[in-house]
Design a protein around this nucleic acid. Structure first.
Length: 564
RNA sequence: CGGGGAGUGGCGCAGUCUGGUAGCGCACCCGGCUGGGGGCCGGGCGGUCGCAGGUUCAAAUCCUGUCUCCCCGACCA
């Protein structure tokens, strides 16, 4: 049923007042989704069509690499999650049934699939395997946001690979890379595959698929031949000119100057000629003084990796007690008491840094001469840094997919092993691979929207064609449109036929808001020329009318196939 | 979890300060006109003002409590 007069497509002229992201506003306005609660969304018929189109692409590519589709429950015994060590995750929904048995709502399905594989797979002959499903995920998000981009309940395709050894895992991983590349290409998105953090729970490799868009929650560092999540990105810093080192550091009076900008300005040096102190307290190592260039920032994730444990910024009292007055902290003279960690981007030379005395800085502090230190890459990359001589840029992006080499973490915890050719028990090597159709849809909205509304890539558009009849309900235009509608449907095209008794302006506006790739119009004007008018939604280009004296379906289909 | 904002008809809002029994635009329904970019005229339907308690002759409005939603940050296995 795709006559608009009968179809549930509640378009709105105004976006909800609380909507901020483009995709949030447009998906609501276009009648694709409606909110039920924080991070809880209903997909209305047209929106669900988009979702299912994305699913279809994902399913085809999963099947193409030998994936086998199945379905596992969302409601699961808590015990499995205790065994895997993930029960304590705050985002995990926990509940009790009437007998007070503990259950959880799954946020992914590693436990479930490993549970089954553990009991069903016995022999090396049963491996490798790729199993996948499309299933609802539940996450008690601290802050759902941006419409459908970050929700508490969403559908994900998650697949799991099971291999005999690390080489097998690498091969399965590679097949997923190729499948994911194809999925996102086919969905018409602009995307990057970036190196990502493997997470605290380990694993040997991980990539994220990022779709750049303004509402994105992540940042990616990009250069020709390079793409990485800013969380893990490493690049060469822009060099900075340093003043000559003297015989020893000279103490300067810098009353009240506590920021890099203030000190650099007062001393007439570049911010990068300062060493900025960032005291942290690590879980077991205690206070560590992290030093980065004045124009750089600490990357907490890289710092945690360098320290081998979590660390938090030190409190003012801790700083005052162990180092000196906050704002005037530096590495000179304290390195015997507090370990100093210097970022790799700090080149050899003399720097300005805090003197650990009120209203005093040091000029000419030389790492190694004036204080001892350990070196590590702990800074966040900045736009303009280089990788292989190429400047990077940093863009916001939404994570639409991620792939992990899990290794044996879950198989060992849940007892998924097999007997090898020699009858020896071996752990199964696993990978996990997620992709979110809702995020792909929202990213497409973000990437291709214009003033008029959405402009879908044709592979995931809710309909191939919006057909508009302009004119009276019983007029010749309407009769011609009815006939054309019948021909197009007969020819296998997905058509949304606007047969409402509404004005032309309203119909055009709604069609462009919904964003199907082709808009066909039949009205007085086109009837006089014996054609149906054609507009390509992307760019709103008018194309030459297509004669309707004979069935134009093939010609329309051919045109549609050329669209992005 | 910290900070900020908001709950009044389907959507967007006014009314709250100064208490007097709810209003506007759009949408919707009926009739008519119009018929190529959200058109016009006339007539209508629809809201226990988030919820609970309190003050008062009287509460959308004042007081107390509570729930929900949004934004920024933190968090995001």
């Amino acid at each position: 049923m795709t006559r608009l007069s009968q179809y549930l497509l509640p378009t709105e002229r105004q976006a909800p007042a609380d909507a901020e992201a483009v995709s949030h506003k447009l998906m609501v306005r276009a009648g694709l989704v409606r909110q039920m609660g924080a991070g809880l969304w209903t997909w209305l018929p047209a929106g669900w069509r988009v979702h299912r189109r994305v699913e279809a692409v994902v399913r085809q590519e999963m099947d193409a690499i030998g994936g086998q589709e199945m379905l596992m429950p969302v409601l699961q015994p808590a015990d499995l999650w205790r065994r895997s060590g993930r029960y304590e995750i705050d985002e995990l929904f926990k509940l009790l049934d009437r007998r007070r048995a503990e259950l959880v709502l799954a946020m992914t399905h590693e436990e479930a699939v490993t549970f089954h594989v553990a009991s069903l797979v016995r022999s090396y002959r049963d491996l490798p395997k790729i199993l996948y499903h499309f299933q609802v995920k539940e996450r008690d998000e601290p802050r759902p946001r941006a419409g459908v981009l970050r929700t508490r309940e969403f559908i994900m395709k998650d697949s799991y690979s099971f291999d005999r050894d690390p080489d097998g895992l690498a091969a399965s991983y590679q097949r997923h890379i190729e499948a994911y590349d194809r999925m996102l290409d086919r969905c018409g998105l602009e995307w990057y595959r970036v190196v990502s953090d493997v997470g605290i729970m380990g694993g040997t490799a991980a990539h994220e698929y990022m779709a750049p868009c303004p509402a994105g929650e992540n940042e990616v560092a990009l250069a020709p031949g390079y793409a990485a999540n800013v969380e893990v990105a490493a690049a060469d810093a822009v060099p900075v000119s340093l003043p000559d080192a003297g015989e020893q550091p000279v103490e300067l009076s810098t009353p009240g100057l506590v920021t890099v900008e203030q000190v650099a300005g007062a001393l007439g040096v570049e911010p990068g000629a300062l060493l900025k102190a960032y005291p942290v307290v690590a879980d077991s190592a205690g206070m560590v003084l992290v030093m980065v260039r004045g124009d750089h920032r600490v990357n907490e994730l890289k710092l945690a990796r360098a320290l081998g444990e979590r660390a938090r910024p030190a409190h003012e009292e801790e700083i005052a007690e162990q180092l000196g007055p906050p704002g005037f902290i530096g590495p000179v003279g304290i390195d015997a008491r507090v370990p100093v960690l210097v970022d790799e981007a700090v080149a050899e030379g003399a720097y300005v840094t805090g003197a650990n005395r009120p209203d005093r800085h040091l000029r000419g502090a030389v790492p190694g001469r004036d204080f001892s230190f350990r070196r590590a890459d702990v800074r966040r990359v900045e736009a303009g840094d280089t990788v292989d001589g190429q400047a990077i840029r940093i863009e916001p992006a939404i994570e639409v997919g991620n792939i992990f080499q899990l290794g044996t973490r879950y198989s060992e915890a849940l007892g998924a092993s097999y007997l090898d050719e020699h009858g020896r028990e071996q752990p199964i090597w696993m990978g996990s691979y997620g992709i979110g159709p809702a995020r792909i849809a929202a990213a497409a909205v973000e990437q291709f929207a214009d003033e008029q509304g959405i402009s879908w890539p044709r592979t995931i558009a809710p309909f191939a064609v919006s057909l508009i009849a302009v004119g009276k309900a019983d007029g010749a235009e309407r009769r011609a449109a009815e006939q054309l509608y019948g021909q197009l449907v007969e020819g296998g095209l997905d058509v949304l036929y606007d047969d409402r008794d509404a004005g032309p302006g309203e119909k055009f506006a709604d069609a462009e808001l919904l964003g199907c790739p082709l808009r066909l119009t039949l009205g007085r004007r086109s009837l006089e020329s014996g054609t149906v008018e054609v507009q390509v939604r992307r760019g709103r280009q008018a194309r030459e009318g297509i004669p309707i004296s004979e069935d134009p379906t093939q010609e329309i289909r051919s045109l549609w196939e050329t669209l992005p």
